[in-house]
């Protein structure tokens, strides 16, 4: 398939379309246009552009719906939104849903070219990785981390990469996996390695809990312990094994956090979320290792 070489601009206003076309053509880009999101999706299916620039308010399929449709069908295709004054909130929401950037319409001629250049250079930088990813059938990674919770989001981001490459889950499923991973990693650090109980969180507004976490991060043997994270992903499933170096805990001893009597108690909720978001969860006998499995949903399959 030929490498995409044009930009698709989408707007129901012919004047705005023309203005965007002129700005982009002046910068040397090849430009095509569509009058709404539906027409844009039809064009994308026939001839993939390297970038989509879309208005928010349009008939048939608006800009937000177009972002969602593009992310579902062609996740690597960048989308820039153009916004009128006052729609910054919607644009921010679109960014969370996968749009690459947004440009206010009021100073389009000034701000559009640098944003397009920046988004395209990022797209170009990752093109090789995306092309090779198409051939990936399995991926494994093992990370060994210290007891720094600030690292957890970065670790999760790294673990998400093979799942994206193998096209395993949609964004909603990946968010749920991210939440389960967060719970498991924080459990391993705080309750496993640092041996700080969540019950302490209910004392004096949680200050003794946070103080003890900080104290033990500097004390032996706690500070020397590590968390080992292993991921193995195939085209059908992903498996995570997270192991800490603490003394382990008895999962059977946890109170049911959904019992009305325990609703306000600390503890147990993280594990409950992990079980809800993963297909299979296994603890080792000692209680310091958790194995979590998530399978790719096959269309038409039922449990």
């Amino acid at each position: 398939m030929a490498e995409p070489n044009h930009i698709l601009v989408v707007d129901d206003s012919p004047t705005q379309l023309r203005q965007m076309q002129l700005v982009l053509e002046k910068e040397g880009y090849s430009v095509r246009s569509a009058a709404d999101g539906k027409e844009a999706m039809e064009q994308i299916a026939i001839d993939l552009p390297m970038l989509v620039i879309t208005d928010l308010q349009m008939p048939e399929m608006n800009g937000l719906e177009l972002v969602a449709a593009v992310k579902a069908s062609t996740p690597s295709l960048p989308v820039i939104l153009t916004t009128s004054q006052g729609s910054e909130d919607i644009a921010a929401s679109a960014l969370r849903d996968g749009a690459s950037s947004y440009v206010p319409k009021r100073d389009m001629a000034l701000t559009l070219p640098p944003v397009v250049k920046q988004v395209l250079s990022l797209y170009e930088a990752t093109r090789f990785i995306r092309e090779v990813s198409k051939f990936a059938v399995e991926s494994s990674i093992t990370l060994v981390i210290g007891n720094d919770e600030m690292l957890v989001p970065k670790v999760i981001e790294r673990l998400e990469r093979p799942m994206v490459e193998l096209d395993l889950f949609d964004e909603g499923e990946r968010l749920q996996i991210a939440m389960a991973l967060d719970e498991a990693l924080v459990n391993a650090i705080v309750h496993g390695n640092l041996e700080v109980s969540s019950e302490l969180r209910q004392t004096e507004d949680g200050k003794p809990y946070t103080d003890l976490i900080e104290k033990r991060k500097t004390e032996s043997p706690y500070k020397d312990r590590r968390v080992k994270v292993h991921l193995h992903a195939s085209c059908q499933q992903v498996k995570f094994v997270i192991c800490d170096e603490g003394n382990g805990f008895d999962t059977a001893a946890l109170r049911d956090p959904t019992d009305p009597e325990n609703l306000e108690r600390a503890g147990g909720r993280g594990l409950l979320l992990i079980n809800a978001f993963m297909d299979e969860v296994i603890h080792n006998d000692c209680g310091n290792e958790i194995t979590m499995l998530k399978r790719k949903q096959v269309d038409g399959a039922s449990d």
């Binding site: 909130d89 921010a92 968010l175 939440m179 924080v186 507004d205 600390a266």
Partner: peptide, 17 residues
Amino acid sequence: FKNVGHISSEFIAAMID
């Protein structure tokens, strides 16, 4: 919560407080 993307059980505990 319109700006909140995702949360953890720790945040739920904070909300209870």
